[in-house]
């Protein structure tokens, strides 16, 4: 039986078309890059208005998050994601999308058990493990000083 399973697995690999890695990488590169360029444009604009660099960066994040959520609500972000892949997942707009999409989807189950409970089903692990990682990095930083 194990032999059969291994043999079948090989057969499946041969029959299953692969994703086009090069095309996907290229699309992720230009779309992700474009989002970053937009972010940089917003930051520079605020710097030109005389804002402090930290303030300019914070405002940029807020604006990009807003755009990400707005495009999710309008049903556009998932269409972008089809082409962009990681290009629209990795930037902060993708993070906004990953929170807004479940919030929209589970609205019908109410604000407590729907929106409230399900909002972070995708972003939750990212938050948990990025916090954990930052703690570990913090400890190393403390010890290295």
């Amino acid at each position: 039986m194990q032999d059969n399973k291994a043999k079948y697995q090989k057969m499946v690999e041969k029959s299953s078309p692969n994703t086009n890695l090069i095309l996907n990488c290229l699309n992720a590169f230009w779309t992700g890059g474009l989002i970053c360029v937009i972010g940089q444009f917003i930051t520079n604009s605020f710097l030109n208005l005389g804002c402090d660099i930290d303030i300019a960066r914070t405002i940029t994040s807020v604006i990009l998050i807003f755009i990400g959520i707005l495009l999710t609500g309008l049903g556009v972000y998932d269409e972008i994601g089809k082409i962009a892949g990681a290009g629209s997942v990795v930037p902060i707009t993708g993070f906004a999308n990953s929170v807004a999409a479940p919030a929209l989807e589970f609205k019908k189950e109410g604000f407590i058990f729907g929106v409230g409970a399900k909002m972070f089903i995708i972003a939750g692990p990212v938050i948990v493990y990025s916090t954990l990682t930052s703690v570990i990095v913090g400890i190393f930083y403390y010890l290295s000083k």
Binding site: S16, P17, N18, T19, N24, T72, G73, G75, Y77, D78, E79, I80, G81, K82, A84, G85, S88, V89, G94, N97, S98, A100, A101, P102, L104, E105, F106, I122
Partner: peptide, 17 residues
Amino acid sequence: EKQFRFPLELGTQRTPT
């Protein structure tokens, strides 16, 4: 999609299979 995969508006790619 809601029950088995991801929320509809999540920007993910579907695999060819």
